[in-house]
Every structure is written in structure tokens, then in C-alpha cells.
Design a protein around this nucleic acid. Structure first.
Lengths: 186, 186, 186, 186
DNA sequence: GATGAATGAGACTTCATTCAT
DNA sequence: GATGAATGAAGTCTCATTCAT
């Protein structure tokens, strides 16, 4: 509600920046670690983020927002199949290039309301796109709404298992999504 | 190479049995834990299995062997597509019902030669079945040998993300494999 | 000495009110805690009460004053024994129903002059009542002035050890005081 | 059951010895602290004593045993009042000279079975002695079995509140017990 | 004066691994 | 070979107090 004080906001930023770096490095988030790297007291980090999950979700939030935006675009597309497939592709690409997203997506329970909100919005978008595609006869009828997220996580995981280096991931992910989409199409 | 002394062999068995129980419970393997439950000293466990991975792979070995056997059966099947698809299905079912298999499959580096051997055999079988299916025109040409394992792991992971309870897993896994197989078919 | 500014006075009141609530709940006083509940900054609380003890003594003060008043009444009673015993009974009842009083009573060093003053007044009253009772031959001669407070604290503590719930305390406390008084009577 | 290995037994002793020193100093027991002073790893201390309470009770055990022994002696005394009063006196003296005993006595829940056993034995002895004294008409009829422990704790606490230095405690304790006993006598 | 973010020492606990017995 | 006690680094988290805003 109340905006953060200037110095607190600076620390908040530092923490999130450092956490993002760690996530990108593939290092598991540890609040002590974050504090040390950010040059702050542990207590400061705990004040802003009482748990690792809270920090991780905060780090993931901008990416979730970007995905939600893309979802809004997709909803404007008249071609049901194109909209659906581009949305799923985007979802996988994001997970594959951002470990925080992969974890947050695979976890049922969120700690931040904002995370829940965004995930619900993404679910709603996915459901709507799926319904349209199904109605258009473009998608197999036995695919349930609840399958979307797991399948996306699965594809991301397959990519992760396949690739040695992060750099190789994107093309692999695209091939896998395409394969999946073929499997989903009617 | 030299066969184990009788008591050592008994201990080995106990350890592996207990480890299998823990794996089935979903409890993360801890060598101390295993020792306590097996009524043995930690040192004994460490003597037999210097790392958690060694024990985990040992636990997984019989399952890998069963899969290899199934692979041999599949190689005798004249119907290339049926052979291929039943093999992949079996692979996923195994991972989904056995956490040790899921971990061992997803890990590139093995610590036991036997594990490497079995994984290579499975790879070889998969490759052969894939080649046959491709030759028979049943499978898309752009699916590489190296994609098989990652995709199986991906499907298993998707199942894991989807299902609340272990009991629900098998039907979900089958649906997902079927979807994938549709995507792989030509 | 200079009266507090009106807003400062309001904060002081809030703090003491909240602290009293915490004490009554049995929650150990923490200045941060008090600040949060009072909707004030920690700094404000620290300005008014530099230590937990200062706040605790402030919370206890009105009760000490009430006890001092009762002491004044007792001094007017002609029956030396009745005056003495009712005073001690009141002392115990107060401690038993108010944790702040129990702590302040059991502590030798005070941080607030007002606390010291009140405790001295109570001591003086107790001493006077004891002297009168002793003179009247109602009390054993070997009971020293300095024994009064410790014995009262002891009875309160015995009550605390005995009773499961705060509700049971008063009758137990009365039984114990009566027993002690019998022991003190000549 | 199985006796400790020699080195383990030595460490156990060290730990208990150090803990006894700390208790006697009045320092609150902290497992880390104990480890450092004993020149042992924290883990070692935790292996032997999973909680502070377990260590404290272990430290108190020999004293409880000595009290139980004294209780057995008291039961052989034909003079019901003398037996009763000497038992209570001894109980208080022990608490007053040993902080571990004071804490263990005042706590309802024990963590070691041995502690519970000894406390129950002491209770049984106290109850028996009380019954005899009551039957002999030496004790007021309204004193319940459950009052014995709280009253002893109360007297010990009163002594603690009264005395500045540990050295002064014993005579004070005796005076207070005597007073209490007068109050209890018929 | 008031605020509350920041601090960081320090308490607690776990666990993979070693090594004396 | 078997044992299991010992280790202690490393992680978690709390809270009394300070001080910049």
C-alpha cells in the first residue's frame, strides 16, 4: 500500500537483482547468500522476503506479467489454432530460459497473492484459447484444461534434460513444443 | 569381482531393500537414514555405497534390467510402430511409478558402470526401434535419437506436476504418452 | 517534568495500554511487538521506554499504587492481625492475577524511581503492620521485615506451579496464604 | 540398554560435567555453549542430548536420586511428623542449592522417563508421609497431595528472591520451611 | 519527535563424511 | 569388515537496538 521509503526501495531492488543473478546462474536461492552478495544484513532480506519462495516468486513476477500480456495479444488473434499454439510456445520458451519460472509454474501453492493472480490469469487465457481451438475443431477433444500447465512444464523439463548448455535450449524447446502441438491437434 | 562374503552380501541386500522402501515412500535417500533403518552402521553403508547416487543407481538397476528385457521383446515385434510405441509407453510407466528411475534417467553422469551399460542398451534399443519406425514411415523424420530419453522424462515430469496423489499417475501418464506419440507419428 | 506534548501523551498511553494487554495475555514483552500492535514506530516506543523493564514497571505502577492505597486503609484498622493478614492476602492476590506485578516484585533493582518509591512505601506499610502485629503478640517474633516480600513472591510462585489455568489461581492462592499466615501467627 | 562405547561415555561425562558447571554458575543452558566449553562438536552434544531439557534433567538426576533415597529413609521413621517435616526440608534445601532441581521440579512435563519415574517416586513418598502425618493428627486435613510440590517450589523461590548471594540461601530456606511447616501442622 | 528499515550477532539445528574402536 | 560416535561447516531464523529519513 504505502510506497517503500527510498532507501528501502533501493535495498529491495538490490535483493531482487541479486536473486535474479543467482537464479540465472542456476544457484539455488538462499536468503543468507543473497544478503551477503547484496551487501546487506540477513535481517533486511528477511524483512522484505520472509521465505525463499516469496523471493523466487518476486523474481518471476515480471516474466509472468510479460506472459500475461502476450496472452492478451493472443486472445485478439482470429486464428484459434495459431493463437493457441503461439501462446503455448511462448510459455515454454519462457520457462526454458528462466529457472524461476519453471519452479513457480511447477508449484501448486503460491505464497504471493500476485503470483496466484497471474497464474490464474494465464490459466484463464489458456483455457479460453483451448476452448476456441477445440470449438474450431483444431484440437483433440480429450485434452483437459488442467493438462496445459503440466504439459508445458514437461516440455521445459525435457528440454532441460536434453541440453548441456543453456544456449542450446531454445531450439530444442521449439522442436519439442512443435511435436507436442502436433500431438494435440485434431 | 570377488564374490562378497556371506555376511557382507546379507548387508548389501538389507541396504538395497531399505533404500528401495525409502525411494518408494518418496523419502530422499540419506545414507545415515538407510543405515539406521537397516540396523547397520553408517560405515557399512558407506563401504558398500560411497555415495547416494551409487545406492540410487543400484536400487534402480533391476528396473532398468526389466526395461531392457522388454526392449528385447519389442525388437522381435514385426510391427515397427507398435514396437516403438509400446517401448516408450513402458519407459514412461516405469519412471512414473518409480522415483529412482526418474532420477537416474534424467541424470547424464552415472557412477556405476552397470547403470551406464543398461542405459546405453536402452538407448540402442530405442534408436533401433525409432529407425525401424522411421523407415516404415510411421514416425516423423526430424525426431533424433537423443530426443527419446528427454521426452520420456518430460512426460513423466508432466505427470508428476499434474497429479496430486501417486495413485492417479498411471492413467495420466498414459494419456500424455499417447498425445506425445501422436505428435511423433508421421 | 515538562508535561508531554499532546500527541506524545497519546502515544505514551497507547503503548502502555498495549503493553498491559500483552502482559495480561502472558506474552513476554517485546518492544518491537508493542510498537507494531500500537501502530507506532519502534523508535517511538524506545524514546518513551528505553528498556523492557521500564515499560513493565510503568504497566505495573497503577497496581502498585492500588496496593499502596489498600495499605493505607489497613493502617487504619485497629485489629493488628486482621490488618496484617488482609494486607498480605491482597499482595498475593495482586501478584497472582498480574504477571507484571509478580516480576516487578521479585526484582531487586528497579529502573524507574516511581517503582522504587512505591515498593518502599509498601515495604514501610508491611513493616509497620508487622511490628504492630508482633507487638500485639499475634505474630512470631522471628519473622523479619525483609521476609515479607520474598514470602509473598513464594506464595504467588507456588500458585503458579500448582495451577493449570489462570482461572484456578485465586482460590489456590488464598489457601496458600492462609497456610502461610497460620505459620506466621504466634 | 547397550553400554556406551568408552570414548562416547567420556564425552557424555564431559558434557554433563560442563552442564553441571553452567547450571551452578546460573548460566542458562545452551547446547552450543556446552559443546564449546566441553571442546566437542555441537553434533556430539546433540547426539547425546537432543534438547536442553534432556540435558538439564540428566544433570538433575543424581540429585533426584539422592532425594528419593532420603525419602526411603524417612519412610522408616516412626515419628510421622518428624518424617514428614524432614523430608520437606530436604526437598527445599536441594532445590535451593541446585538450580537444575528447581527448574525440573517446577516443570510439569518431563522429557526423560527416568525423570518422570523419580518425580513420581518422590510424589508417592510425599503422599505417604503426608497421609501418615494426617492420620496421626499432626497435619491439617485440608492439605492436598498436589500441594506439596508447589509449596516446596514456592519456598525455594522465596529463598531465591530473598537472598543476594547463594551462600546465604540455606539458613533462609530453613527458616521459611519451618514457617510453612508450622502453617501445615494441626 | 516520530518513523520503521537496517543491522548482524548469535542461537538453533542438520547431515554428509570420517575415523577410532 | 563392521560399527556408530564425532565432527563442524553451513544453513535457518530471531530480535534488541540503532540511525537515516
Amino acid at each position: 500500500m504505502t510506497p517503500l521509503r527510498k532507501d528501502a526501495a533501493r535495498n529491495w531492488d538490490r535483493i531482487v537483482t541479486v536473486a535474479r543473478e543467482l537464479v540465472d546462474e542456476g544457484t539455488p536461492l538462499q536468503l543468507n547468500d543473497v544478503a551477503r552478495r547484496a551487501g546487506l544484513g540477513v535481517g533486511t532480506v528477511y524483512r522484505h522476503f520472509p521465505t525463499t519462495e516469496a523471493l523466487l516468486e518476486t523474481v518471476a513476477t515480471p516474466c509472468l506479467e510479460a506472459l500475461a500480456d502476450h496472452g492478451d495479444q493472443a486472445l485478439k488473434d482470429d486464428d484459434a489454432w495459431r493463437a493457441f499454439s503461439s501462446f503455448l510456445t511462448r510459455l515454454v520458451e519462457a520457462q526454458v530460459s528462466d529457472p524461476s519460472l519453471a519452479k513457480v509454474s511447477a508449484t501448486a501453492e503460491d505464497v504471493l497473492p500476485r503470483t496466484t493472480e497471474l497464474k490464474q490469469q494465464l490459466m484463464a487465457t489458456g483455457t479460453e484459447l483451448l476452448t476456441r481451438a477445440r470449438t474450431a475443431g483444431a484440437v483433440r477433444p480429450d485434452l483437459a484444461d488442467g493438462d496445459l500447465i503440466p504439459l508445458m512444464c514437461g516440455v521445459a523439463y525435457a528440454t532441460y534434460v536434453h541440453s548441456d548448455s543453456p544456449a542450446d535450449r531454445l531450439p530444442t524447446a521449439r522442436r519439442y513444443v512443435d511435436t507436442l502441438l502436433r500431438g494435440l491437434s485434431a
